[in-house]
């Protein structure tokens, strides 16, 4: 081993390359399948790029058309933001509650863990079909259940006012992955903390507020970012469940881009749309990152700093 190390030191060039060699499969992958198409789409966004005939360079026309001459652009953007505002807090809340439930020591908790995670394994297409049935105004199980309670359910996917709520509900069903991330984090919290808190007389709610919540803020932070991004990119559900309807009330930005590309064959315009969304996501993520210093709590930060105030109390 030592000799090998020396040899590496001697040929410095190789030494420098070694780490890149190790991560090269990943680099090649991201260059070929992410960075390449990404840059290509940026180039496309400056062209009038129909599918079947020759592309033509048009400078910033796609961008100016988007901002000045396409009312649907603003509508879709607004709908998507509205969806994100509903969906992100709801999905965070639900996944956190589920994660707390499955960390309890109850009989059969493993079964519940599987059940709660199961929707995350089901493909988006199947989820859409299932929810299509559930939301059916006349024959759907949801309105049947409501009718048993004496409530006349809304026309979920038919009424433009309730359609976006339906999409939020259907999306919130797939929070399994987020739940799992919360779960592993909560499981990793030292039981000592809870024990001493219990001895000091803290009830479950107080324990959650003063121990669990502060300790999982890094995970909360991570989940907040990923769910914001996935909310802004939502496509599968609207594509299959409503196809933008009724009355374009669920014509999400993702669908807007998709239709521009594959239905109207305006690949250049769609690329410009996509790049604009990329910038929005970038800005939002930067904003969340900025805010994190205020509310995200890293344990090691405290450990390294001298303790503030009375540590022993």
């Amino acid at each position: 081993m030592e000799q090998a190390a020396k040899r590496f030191k001697r040929s410095r060039r190789l030494g420098k390359w070694t780490p890149y060699l190790f991560i090269s499969p990943w680099i090649v992958g991201i260059l070929l399948f992410t960075v390449g198409p990404l840059i290509f789409s940026l180039i496309m966004s400056f062209f009038n790029w129909p599918v079947t005939s020759k592309p033509k360079f048009i400078g910033l026309d796609n961008y100016s058309k988007m901002f000045t001459d396409d009312p649907q652009f603003y509508k879709s953007l607004w709908i998507t933001l509205k969806f994100a505002v509903f969906y992100v807090p709801l999905s965070l809340g639900i996944s956190l509650i589920l994660a707390l439930l499955i960390t309890q020591h109850v009989k059969g908790v493993k079964i519940f863990r599987t059940i709660f995670y199961l929707p995350a394994v089901v493909s988006g297409v199947a989820v859409s079909i299932i929810w299509g049935w559930i939301f059916n105004t006349k024959y759907g199980i949801l309105n049947y259940a409501l009718s048993l309670l004496g409530i006349e359910g809304p026309k979920w996917l038919v009424d433009p006012n309730s359609a976006i709520i339906s999409i939020v509900i259907a999306s919130a069903w797939g929070v399994g992955t987020m739940m799992l991330i919360f779960y592993t984090n909560i499981k990793g919290i030292s039981p000592d903390l809870y024990e001493s808190a219990a001895i000091d007389g803290a009830g479950p709610f107080r324990q959650f507020r003063s121990i669990t919540l502060p300790l999982i803020t890094p995970t909360l932070f991570f989940n907040l970012i990923t769910s914001t991004i996935s909310a802004l990119q939502q496509l599968t559900l609207v594509l299959l469940l409503t196809n933008g309807g009724p009355l374009k009330s669920t014509y999400f930005y993702g669908l807007f881009v998709y239709n521009n590309a594959f239905k109207h064959h305006k690949l250049g315009y769609a690329s410009a749309n996509a790049w604009f969304m990329f910038i929005i996501i970038l800005l939002l993520t930067a904003l969340i990152f900025r805010s994190s210093s205020v509310w995200v709590f890293y344990e090691n930060e405290v450990k390294n700093k001298p303790a503030r105030g009375g540590k022993g109390k």
Partner: peptide
């Protein structure tokens, strides 16, 4: 969209 506006019950 126009047809939907005409036929949508709401």
């Amino acid at each position: 969209l126009a047809f939907e506006q005409i036929f949508n019950p709401s």
